[in-house]
Design a binder for these strands. Structure first.
Length: 813
DNA sequence: TAATTCGCTAGACCGA
DNA sequence: TCGGTCTAGCGAA
């Protein structure tokens, strides 16, 4: 099955040895005009295994087209290229079983050129843009982090005997650099690196060219020696995973530039090579040969983006605090170069430097277990997983499964097609309008994994959709909007989803047997969390315009069924005698009234008895008290996606309120929290009012530190490309004028000061702010965030009209 | 050229 | 000076 090179085939049979090792990564090289795949394996140490493998793609063309195909000549990367050979294969092509051509090329990068030439002859081409390393893993059915038992001959794989799940411990190093920066931004051609810190195997070091009295400091005579020692540490420790924080953009290029200045090779790769920066989607990734380089900064941002966790700002210190729950090391707020130049402060700088790599390592400890699990599940190597988009994660597993079923992987849509798909958005979920008020005794149910379970329960897939009229309705699931999905055979997407849900189910069972707050529990929890994220992404992928498996009808059907089930459950709740207060997508909030918990559970049971497939309504919890507020500018109507509940255990669950938003100041958020706690925990409106009053007094006295007044907003666009000069844009522009580095994606922290007329004029980035405008914070931050809640405590509309007038305020309190 | 849609809110902007 | 509309960001699910 595996092609060995001619030379090794000729060797004696005794040259074949049985071995086992764990697969970490894959790439390829061209050797003697042939493509050879290189597998990065972990045995006692890391090593490479080789395998010759031919690149190919598919052409949907009749048998008679063979000569035409073989005659194709295209201009490749550096020479004229043609197919090397082709063969007839049987495949399922977009739902139809047929014979098509499998066309081989010499090198992977010939494939796009040859296939483009064939596509120009009006023969559809498929699987012509799959990265070759992944092509190999798909065809060999290999999974990263699996232990592979194989026979080898020299450096080449002869035969794979078995594959097993394996625990893996990776040799991980985290690092960080400090640079001398008297001019603000350090200049790589002039400003030296003054410290390199790293952590490996529980030990922490700071390499530096100053003699500093700290036991973790390693003195180097100059920058050159510092860089050399760092590279040696990587090499000697045989580092497998290198962690940095924003190091693709800063540390790595800086180290390389300084290595150049010092006349040394920046040989960070296992083979002595430097790193390579590659554009992936909208961000750059840095690859290091033979090691897995992970920049945690884009990963943290990605996890925040998809909702795995919430982080207010993405600095290393903040990510560390919010992900680990630990406190950051406080340092004297002084520029790094000043600390370096001051003999008294240099040791503190060393502490600070050391902390940065410790923080990086700890963030890695939090994120890596779920990344490794994600890699196993999606079959994308760890490096690719850590840099993948949600679409790529979903797609990867589908591509593997598709190949196993001898089914062509659908092509990505071209731009025109993607744009067309973007035109009419798919109707989404149902949200019930709540009646504002303070309520007692509620029960909340939600559908466990609503969209995934709808997909598996109704076999929703682009290729089970709309079977021919000869398939009777009784053999189909028919969505509320009339689309038919045949019941058998199972579609690819439902099959894959089921597998994910099954693995997650097993993990959750395992979790129940493990003590909470142990490292093992945390790790397994992270794993099941990543599976949940993955499962929940499948619906989004179906509706994603650039998806290979896009289907408007499928997407519409998922949400239509979603609306159907939630509304049906609401109706049944009402009929059973519950007052249904609220519901959003997959959840319903019932007022218990005179009903018992037992009645509630009976209701849930009854609903579950009628649900298809793996769909299930779960108890989310009982809540003794909850607050729903009115919507602004909508007389008396309730606000959706905004509520606060207190559980039986006293824990408060808050959704949508300003207090959970990062674009509100801490003073407003803390005040709102105080008010909600007063109501929910203590049922005391006096206490609620006091919280507000106290904060207003503090603000007026001018005693509130700027930290509590800072409003954070992300610049989602290039700072110059805004139509409107909003406060954050205005603050950013002033920052840029003062020499700050602010670009697309930057988080702007600004304060409303006393200088200027409009709010935007008054907005200054926190670093530049000297004072604050108490009236703004009282009228535009504190009051709007608490008035709607106080109103539910019985303060009439008229009482609240004083807004902005200090006289009225005094009256109120 | 980051999976989806639904929903709230602020502050700028614009014309009466 | 006002009220309506639009841009923009963020959160819920």
């Amino acid at each position: 099955m595996l092609t060995a090179p001619k030379s090794s085939v000729a060797k004696k049979e005794t040259g074949v040895v049985k071995r086992k090792a764990i697969l970490l990564d894959v790439d390829y090289r061209i050797k003697d005009e042939k493509t050879v795949v290189r597998l990065l394996m972990k045995g006692k140490r890391l090593f490479r295994l080789y395998d010759y493998y031919e690149p190919y793609f598919y052409v949907d063309a009749p048998k008679s087209a063979e000569k035409e195909i073989m005659a194709v000549k295209a201009i490749g990367r550096d020479r004229q290229v043609s197919p090397t050979r082709c063969e007839r294969v049987k495949m399922n092509v977009l739902g139809v079983e047929k014979e098509i051509w499998k066309v081989f090329c010499e090198r992977p990068y010939d494939v796009p050129h040859v296939s483009a030439a064939i596509a120009a002859m009006k023969h559809p081409c498929y699987e012509n843009n799959i990265p070759f390393g992944r092509r190999y893993l798909i065809d060999r059915d290999l999974t990263p982090f699996m232990k592979i038992i194989y026979e080898r001959e020299g450096k080449f794989i002869k035969r794979i005997i078995a594959k097993k799940d394996a625990a893996v411990q990776l040799r991980t190093m985290a690092y960080d650099i400090e640079t001398y920066n008297p001019k603000g931004m350090p200049r790589p051609d002039k400003d030296e690196i003054i410290m390199i810190s790293y952590e490996f195997g529980g030990k922490r070091f700071v390499l530096t060219s100053k003699k500093i009295d700290r036991d973790f400091v390693v003195y180097c005579k100059d920058e050159r020696e510092m860089i050399k020692k760092f590279l040696e540490a990587i090499k000697e420790n045989d580092v497998e995973v290198l962690l940095g924080y924003n190091d693709t953009v800063f540390d790595l290029p800086y180290l390389k530039a300084r290595a150049d200045v010092n006349g040394i090779d920046f040989s960070i790769g296992r083979d002595g090579s430097s790193f390579r920066v590659r554009r992936q989607g909208i961000r750059d990734v840095a690859e290091i040969t033979g090691r897995i380089h992970i920049d945690l900064y884009p990963l943290v941002r990605f996890m925040g983006f998809i909702g795995a966790f919430k982080i207010s700002k993405y600095t290393l210190e903040n990510a560390y605090e919010e992900l680990t729950g630990k406190k950051k090391l406080m340092v004297v707020k002084l520029e790094i170069w000043k600390m370096w130049d001051d003999p008294k402060l240099a040791p503190l700088l060393a502490d600070y430097s050391r902390f940065d790599s410790v923080a990086t390592m700890e963030i890695g400890n939090v994120l890596l277990p779920s990344q490794i699990e994600m890699s196993r599940v999606t079959r994308l190597p760890l490096f690719d997983t850590a840099n993948a988009t949600a679409g790529q994660l979903v797609e990867s597993l589908l591509m593997h499964k598709s190949a196993q079923y001898k089914t062509i992987i659908p092509n990505k849509p071209d731009d025109a097609m993607a744009q067309e798909r973007e035109l009419g958005p798919i109707k989404g979920a149902f949200v019930k309008l709540p009646q504002p008020g303070i309520y007692e005794n509620m029960v909340v149910f939600d559908f466990r994994g609503l969209y995934p379970s709808i997909i598996t329960a109704h076999n929703i897939d682009p290729f089970t959709l709309n079977p021919p009229a000869s398939v009777p309705d009784s053999d189909c699931y028919i969505s509320p909007n009339g689309h038919r999905f045949k019941k058998t055979p199972r579609g690819l997407i439902p099959t894959v989803l089921e597998e994910i849900l099954q693995v997650r189910g097993a993990l959750k069972t395992q979790l129940k047997k493990i003590e909470k707050d142990t490292p093992e529990y945390e790790m397994l929890f992270a794993r099941q969390q990543s599976l949940k994220i993955l499962a929940n992404s499948y619906y989004g992928y179906l509706a994603y315009p650039r998806s290979r498996w896009y289907s408007r009808d499928c997407g519409e059907s998922v949400t239509a069924w979603g609306r159907h089930f939630i509304q049906d459950t609401i109706d049944k709740g009402e009929k059973t005698g519950f007052n249904v207060l609220y519901g959003d997508t997959d959840s319903i909030f019932l007022l218990m009234g005179k009903k018992s918990k037992d009645d509630a559970m009976q209701f849930m049971k009854k609903i579950n008895a009628e649900l298809p497939g793996d769909m299930e309504l779960e108890l989310e919890g009982f809540y003794p008290r909850g607050v729903f507020v009115t919507k602004k500018n909508a007389e008396g109507a309730g606000a959706k996606k905004k509520y606060a509940l207190i559980g039986e255990d006293g824990r408060i669950k808050i959704r949508g309120f300003e207090l959970v938003r990062r674009d509100w100041s801490a003073v407003a958020k803390n005040t709102q929290r105080g008010v909600l706690e007063a109501i929910l925990k203590h049922g005391s409106k006096e206490m609620a009012v006091k919280v507000v009053k106290d904060m207003i007094v503090r603000l007026k006295e001018g005693k509130v530190p700027l930290e509590e007044l800072t409003i954070y907003t992300q610049m989602k666009k290039d700072p110059r490309k805004y139509d409107i000069k909003s406060p954050e844009v205005s603050a950013a522009q002033k920052g840029i004028a003062a020499g700050m580095q602010i670009e697309k994606g930057s988080m702007i922290g600004y304060v409303i000061t006393k200088t200027g007329k409009t709010i935007s004029e008054k907005a200054y980035v926190v670093e530049m702010a000297k004072d604050y405008d108490p009236n703004y914070y009282i009228d535009n931050q504190i009051l709007p965030s608490v008035l709607k809640i106080l109103k539910e405590l019985g303060y009439s509309e008229d009482d609240l009209k004083f807004k902005g007038e200090q006289k009225g305020l005094e009256q109120f309190f």
